[in-house]
Amino acid sequence: MNSLPVLAVETEEACCAPAAAPALGAEEALQKALVFKALSDPNRLRLLSMVKAEAAGESCVCDLTGPLDLGQPTVSHHLKILVDAGLLHREKRGTWAYYSLVPGALEKTAGLLATL
C-alpha cells in the first residue's frame, strides 16, 4: 500500500499584539530630525549657547564670527539651520541680522526624546 506523506498545516497567527501607542508620524519625525540635525554640529551648539548667554537676549551676526574663528558666510549658514529648526529667530536691521532664541524652543527641544 502506498502511503502519502502527511503535510503539516500551518495556521497564520500574529507574532505579537500591535503597540497601543501610535508610531511617530512621518511629518513629526521629519520635524524632530531637523532639530536633532541642527544640534548635531559643535559650531551650532556654540552659536546657540552664545545667543542664549547674551544679556540683551539677542546677538548680531557680526559678534558671532570672531569667537568661532569662522567666516561670516559659514556662521550665517549655521545660523540659518538653527532658524529653520525653530530654535532661533532672525531679525534683519539694515545690513546686519540679529538672532534671538525662540521663546520656549529650548524647553520644547529638551522634551523631544520624551515624546517618542
Rank of each mutant, 00 (worst) to 15 (best):
M1L: 05
N2G: 03
N2S: 03
S3W: 02
P5G: 07
V6Y: 13
V6E: 05
L7Y: 02
V9F: 03
T11K: 02
T11F: 09
E12V: 15
A14R: 15
C16N: 06
A21G: 13
A21L: 15
P22L: 13
A23P: 09
A23K: 14
L24M: 09
L24Q: 10
G25F: 09
A26L: 13
A29Y: 01
A29R: 13
V35N: 02
V35C: 06
K37T: 12
K37V: 14
A38T: 07
L39V: 01
L39Q: 02
S40K: 12
P42M: 04
N43P: 12
R44V: 03
R44W: 06
R44F: 03
R44D: 06
R44T: 01
R46K: 10
L48K: 11
L48A: 05
S49K: 15
M50T: 04
K52V: 15
E54N: 15
E54R: 11
A55Y: 00
A55F: 10
A55Q: 12
A56M: 02
A56Y: 04
E58P: 01
S59F: 07
S59T: 05
C62M: 11
D63W: 00
L64W: 00
T65W: 08
D69E: 06
L70Y: 08
P73E: 13
P73K: 00
V75F: 14
S76W: 02
H77I: 07
L79H: 08
L79G: 00
K80T: 12
I81L: 15
L82C: 03
L82D: 09
V83E: 12
D84H: 09
A85Q: 01
L88F: 14
L88S: 08
R93V: 13
G94E: 05
G94Y: 11
T95G: 10
T95L: 14
W96L: 14
A97G: 07
A97T: 00
Y99G: 01
L101K: 00
L101S: 01
G104D: 07
A105K: 08
L106D: 10
E107M: 00
K108V: 07
G111W: 01
G111S: 00
G111R: 15
A114T: 10
A114V: 07
T115Y: 08
L116C: 12
